[in-house]
């Protein structure tokens, strides 16, 4: 096995193969809970925690699980971790747990988690799998938080409302409010707002990628002219 390229794994997870913006996985929680910054952040962190544990364990047992039964085993593992996460949230973040409701247990159906277990963790050593889980999870969390912030700001004119539910009473002061006479665009909070918001974020990512690509080509013009590398068949 070749040397693990951690830099590449991290960049893939956070940007090039971002689970929300590029793979378009886990859209159900993405749409449903991103009506505020804190909700998005919390669900993103919970998903990251589950992803971390599942990637870690799947990678650890990858040599002992037969290929025929690997998917049921992965599902069992993921379900246990989700249940554990749910119990932890119920115990320490009870208010948030009640707000997020069904979407915490539904992490088990998030395609990102089984996808990374199958496509990455079951084929790579533990450190690489953990890096991948962190990068993918944080990439997903970043999109959830950003979308939540945008929708909260446009929809009700606040930011970080309910931060005390996640960070303790001291965080109550973090809340930004545009004032009581701010009339929010209710649509942003409603489900269509999530679709439109996500579409705009994907467009933004594509614009940035295009700009980066143009800049890279300008910096190294000779690379464009080289013949394509023929993939080896080893």
């Amino acid at each position: 096995m070749t040397e693990v390229n951690y830099h590449r794994i991290t960049l893939d997870g956070l940007w090039h193969n971002n689970q929300a913006l590029v793979a378009l996985l886990g859209l159900c929680p993405l749409m449903a809970v991103t009506n505020s910054t804190i909700n998005g952040l919390t669900l993103g962190l919970a998903t990251t925690a589950v992803l971390l544990m599942s990637n870690l364990s799947v990678s650890t047992i990858r040599h002992w699980v037969r290929a025929e039964i690997r998917l049921p085993v992965f599902v069992l593992l993921i379900a246990s971790f989700v249940t554990a996460t749910e119990l932890v949230m119920n115990a320490w973040f009870h208010e948030l747990y009640k707000i997020l409701g069904i979407f915490v247990p539904l992490i088990v159906t998030n395609c990102t988690i089984i996808g990374r277990a199958e496509a990455f963790a079951s084929r790579n050593p533990v450190p690489a799998a953990v890096t991948d889980a962190l990068a993918m999870g944080l990439g997903f969390t970043a999109v959830l938080t950003l979308l939540g912030a945008l929708r909260e700001l446009i929809g009700q004119g606040t930011l970080l409302s309910g931060a005390h539910l996640l960070f303790g009473e001291a965080a109550r002061a973090w809340e930004f409010s545009a004032g009581n006479d701010f009339q929010g665009l209710l649509l942003a909070i409603l489900p269509p707002g999530a679709f439109i918001g996500l579409g705009l974020l994907i467009a933004l990512k594509n614009v940035i990628d295009k700009g980066l690509g143009a800049r890279a080509r300008k910096a190294e013009p000779s690379h464009c002219q080289t013949a394509p590398v023929v993939p080896s068949r080893s």
Partner: peptide
């Protein structure tokens, strides 16, 4: 529809 839903 956007306006009706957002500013009823």
């Amino acid at each position: 529809a956007l306006l009706l839903v957002s500013f009823p």
